[in-house]
Design a protein around this nucleic acid. Sequence first.
DNA 1: AGTAAACTTTGATCCGGATCAATAAATCAG
DNA 2: CTGATTTATTGATCCGGATCAAAGTTTACT
Lengths: 189, 189
Amino acid sequence: MHEQLTKYITDHSPLKEEHLQQVLSYFKPLRVKKNTLLSRIGEPSRRMFFINTGCLRVYFIKPDGREVTRRFAFENSFSSSLTSFIGGTILKEATQAVELSELLYIDRLDFYGLVDTVPGWDLFYRYCLEYAYVTNTRRLEDFITLSARERYRLLLEENPEVVLRLPNKLVANYLNITQEALSRIKSDI
Amino acid sequence: MHEQLTKYITDHSPLKEEHLQQVLSYFKPLRVKKNTLLSRIGEPSRRMFFINTGCLRVYFIKPDGREVTRRFAFENSFSSSLTSFIGGTILKEATQAVELSELLYIDRLDFYGLVDTVPGWDLFYRYCLEYAYVTNTRRLEDFITLSARERYRLLLEENPEVVLRLPNKLVANYLNITQEALSRIKSDI
DNA sequence: AGTAAACTTTGATCCGGATCAATAAATCAG
DNA sequence: CTGATTTATTGATCCGGATCAAAGTTTACT
């Protein structure tokens, strides 16, 4: 159950066996079917997810009511709405399973308790923050410098599973273009 | 010389007097005139700046050669190109003083040495990462959800000094629109 | 399996902001 | 202080992608 998570953690921040076991003991399994809403905008941020199989989607909602996809997370990665998780504030983003998914989750308070007490786990959190920052900066840069067509090509090159596994509607939403525009881009030889 | 920095640090993460002094001892003063280039794209990331007076601008360069402003930093704030500072990698962003500025800087290796050894300074770094992440996420959201006009209004509301202190050219560049477009937005009553 | 619902494609039109161009205003160096 | 260079304004035109509309296709449910 926890093998993939163990690998992920030890790959990113070496913990002594005893501390690793302590951390793992806080992760609980959760199996959800497609389209399950795991957390809602307006609720306090409570959990961070690790994905054993499946795919999660984090999205927010514009004032006009439309959804905007922040990111997708596939197997062997973490997903949380970090902006609210950090401060334990009200969620500005929802998280949804877009496939049948097997997850492990840790409670926010447990997570930060471990950061303060388990040697090495603070470094794991630091890695998460650094990684999230770099990724986000990159995504902002892509939006600023690339056209819709270029963003699609880049996604296909760097993250083909997004295009291959998910419906066009979600891919278009992630690229911040309409389904129509994505359809035309794809058919453009 | 270090009063503003002291206040900034203690406001964000309480350090014992002894540890505070240890940290402060690594910051060196630097006075630069307008338009000084403080770090260049392609060099390794070496410094983090604290601004006593003046303004720094961090920008990157698009494949077509045009500059894109990442952010401005005014007095009483830190500025670094965190994406490269984190890993000590080659800078993908340049930093320039856009006003006559009085700075304090800390060497990257000193900074991380302190993170590993000075009790409480790791929490300061954690605060920096969390803050940078939240800010960046917000900026991405603004680009995705707002029009040029709306981004300008928001900037004027939340960060009026950018509009008031800096030339239109830089403001437009920060908003990722042309000078012409900004000029029209401003004249639109 | 069969029908409703969701998703995808294609076409016509529209609009925000870019681009190009020309002038006016401000800033800077000697 | 004055000419030179940079910056700001205003106008005309263009283009990427949105919007609206209507088929066509896939997926999901009982």
